[in-house]
Design a protein around this nucleic acid. Sequence first.
DNA 1: ACCTAAATAAGAATTGTTCTTGATAAGGAT
DNA 2: ATCCTTATCAAGAACAATTCTTATTTAGGT
Lengths: 134, 134
Amino acid sequence: MTDQRRAVYDVLMGKRDHPTAVEVFTRVRERVASISLATVYNCLETLTDCGLAKTVADERGPARYCPNLDVHAHFFCEDCGGVSDIPLRNRKRPEDVWEFPQNLVIAHHEVAFRGKCPKCATDAAAKAKAAKRN
Amino acid sequence: MTDQRRAVYDVLMGKRDHPTAVEVFTRVRERVASISLATVYNCLETLTDCGLAKTVADERGPARYCPNLDVHAHFFCEDCGGVSDIPLRNRKRPEDVWEFPQNLVIAHHEVAFRGKCPKCATDAAAKAKAAKRN
DNA sequence: ACCTAAATAAGAATTGTTCTTGATAAGGAT
DNA sequence: ATCCTTATCAAGAACAATTCTTATTTAGGT
């Protein structure tokens, strides 16, 4: 665990908002001014290989990183671009909802929901109501 | 609906194996020899915009395309690289399994499972058994 | 046949990520 | 403490997938 890796890890833990590699890079720079983007990529890869972080694929956009090690899904707000963690319900498994063929072995799953986050949904509803009044 | 779009659509429907844009390109070329990769991208985008196809994001690899319009998840075999469709169980919804915050509005979801497909799982099991015998 | 708008082809450009190379640093053996 | 070995880092080049730009072609309407 080098200075750079520690710094990258601290940044991930510090503001758990699923930053991209570039966002991590700019945040880490405040502490380790000389770090390069390539090193940030290396550190992020090392951390994910060690199981200290996860990568979050956001469609075709840049990959995001997440220090939440629990099994969870991600929600992407189409309005504000925010990403949040969605936990599994107690004792529930994806197998309860999807119909898998026999003998299929599931190693892991990646689940992404898209839509409006609570804040943006309420804002949109308020806006619609205001428009209706006119 | 132009010749190119029809050809791209026919290729997608013809072999429902979730090809990448480049794979679609090479297949379409057999029919419309002069088509360019850019046009294939354009056609695929047009088809998805019209709701005739869906894009399937495979982590950081090239996007794949799928003409199955039903709500479904995807399974990626880590051994053979194959992609297959996983249907939702009757009357089940992701909300049954994941715990969403109040007021969150879900527009759609993308679900990917990874592991061994039935064929690769059986092959691997047979191989392990053979190794054990020695 | 002409005009207009849309679709296509070709290749350049862009974006996000990975690779290559040489420099640097961290431990361990002498 | 010095040398040796190994891993890490920095910098920029390279790469892959996709998008953009521009000119050309095509199709449909007048």
